[in-house]
Design a protein around this nucleic acid. Sequence first.
DNA 1: AATGAATGAGATTTCATTCAT
DNA 2: GATGAATGAAATCTCATTCAT
Lengths: 190, 190, 190, 190
Amino acid sequence: MNKKEKIIHAAIEAFRDKGIEKTKISDIVTLAGIAQGTFYLYFPSKLAVMPAIAEVMVEKTIAAVKNHVQAEESFITKLEQMIDAIFMVTRDYREVLALIYAGLASTEYIKEWETIYEPFCSWVSTFLKQAKTSGVIRDSIDVGTAKLVIGLIESSAEQIYLYDFKQEDKALIQKAEVLEFLKHALGVQE
Amino acid sequence: MNKKEKIIHAAIEAFRDKGIEKTKISDIVTLAGIAQGTFYLYFPSKLAVMPAIAEVMVEKTIAAVKNHVQAEESFITKLEQMIDAIFMVTRDYREVLALIYAGLASTEYIKEWETIYEPFCSWVSTFLKQAKTSGVIRDSIDVGTAKLVIGLIESSAEQIYLYDFKQEDKALIQKAEVLEFLKHALGVQE
Amino acid sequence: MNKKEKIIHAAIEAFRDKGIEKTKISDIVTLAGIAQGTFYLYFPSKLAVMPAIAEVMVEKTIAAVKNHVQAEESFITKLEQMIDAIFMVTRDYREVLALIYAGLASTEYIKEWETIYEPFCSWVSTFLKQAKTSGVIRDSIDVGTAKLVIGLIESSAEQIYLYDFKQEDKALIQKAEVLEFLKHALGVQE
Amino acid sequence: MNKKEKIIHAAIEAFRDKGIEKTKISDIVTLAGIAQGTFYLYFPSKLAVMPAIAEVMVEKTIAAVKNHVQAEESFITKLEQMIDAIFMVTRDYREVLALIYAGLASTEYIKEWETIYEPFCSWVSTFLKQAKTSGVIRDSIDVGTAKLVIGLIESSAEQIYLYDFKQEDKALIQKAEVLEFLKHALGVQE
DNA sequence: AATGAATGAGATTTCATTCAT
DNA sequence: GATGAATGAAATCTCATTCAT
């Protein structure tokens, strides 16, 4: 792993542990096992690492979803698996996700967000399109729906895990609700 | 306006302008027109202002929704009006909303969030319950659905306004999509 | 003495001791007996103290000259006394003078220099004008001559003291030469 | 041009642009088009380049003077030509000249200055000696006078160009004054 | 001889917090 | 209660210097 990647991963770890505010550059470089000055060869400031972190997080999300969703299953099962995957990532990286969100929002890096998120939207979009073609979901589904579905699942996961990530019982109920909600929203034919 | 309120509103303005991270106590007191030391008579730290800000924002949201949603209209129209109201608040305070989210997330104040948000969830919950009673929406709707609806609308609004708050044309399309999505999700009988 | 003056005098002392390059803000604040942060309440950087130092140095020069030149003496003696005074200040503050010169030259503060130096030029100008009126020096002397005289004396003093400030014997010769040179240049009638 | 010369010229350029204080080794090597480490093969530090720069500047001055002063002209014309030449060099390199002065002054390299400057003093000295022999200037002129003449002309040129190097009109007046001043100082017989 | 990424000591700078007024 | 100059601990950031290639 090169130094830049080391910094990004160390920053993720540090931010998860103590939050952006309390993370010092020195925490990051210590975790990365590099010298203080080396940080500045790759990033001009702590916040400048954010877009790179966001990218990694989206990659993690896509990987989790791809990993969980099994091609041979029914649409409804795959939907459930996707929900599971997103809840899992949200649980494991809730601080980082919240921080990316605010970290990007408060900087000039925000424009990069759409680009970074695109691969995930694209994947979900294709997933829905296939279901539409198969007649499993309503025909009026269109491109923008993918983003709504992602937003819905992520925000519901955040509602659970933001408060206390030990609430797996509540998570189960919430996941069931989201699934039910989505079934209707997408007009799933069982 | 008393000094405490001045501080809260100055903090909102400062956080909107430069983000939590870059806002100094001195920025807040300058905007509030009070002395540096006076801040500490009301709040122990910068982040301690967050719950108060959150409260103000939830109040603003409830006010906007109540103001837009007209009792005499059909459910579908009222849903549309609610979407409009939430999009409007998100557009006007997108940074603050993101910051509350992350600002609370990164502190011990997070537990207060559920309490603060409760009045809004409650309002939407009642709104849905009435529709359910009237048979306008599907019967399987339950308490948790209110939060999903709120999360869906807010996240879709953020998707638009986080990037560029001038995109009113895109916002129109997104609002229509959310409405359509919700119609199905809630099983609206027209 | 207020804090700003303390900083200026501490900076002069520090610059004399170790030169600009090697003087740290911490050296200045230690000498001034104030806190590190207090420095920044008065000056944005080390170099920003320069114009204030220059002002003090010009004041010192004027004071030295006024102090040495005795009204009742002949013009030639007064000229000699002025040369003595300038040589003395140059000897005692050679590093500071050199540093002001370069310090101002390398910054945006240079425009202030003419203003700062004005009082001294003015004094010498009056001194020469009186001599001209009394017919002690040639009639073709004009306003600009004052600056030439100052430049001549200062540069000759610097030639001596810049190299090694222990060379008082060489200084004596140099002073005699300057006086002789000036006698002719000004067309002194003895 | 070999690497050492590249460094010297790059240093001159960098010092002119940003002053000694703010010039980093990295600025110099970038301008010189060489690697960071290469610098240290030729000079142990930033200030160690100073004597070499001084040498180059004195060479430039001598070259300018020799180039301008025409052997066949009268002494007074040659004096005028010398003033012109020195003003020109001062105008073009005012920052560097100031910096050499302070740069050398603040280091152990100062002792080299007299050696470096010697060729120029020597030239002016010879120039005056010839005039003395020809009886064009007063007989009491001696060796030290050369330095006074140089100092006078240089300081008067700096007075003009240090403030604003566009003031060619003021420079004309100043040059005329210096010439007049020197005529008397040297006791020129026309 | 030449390179330039990496270093880390040490500088600058910040800013939450205090406290005498 | 209100003030704001002063503080100084603790952060950020710089950059001369090294050294493996």
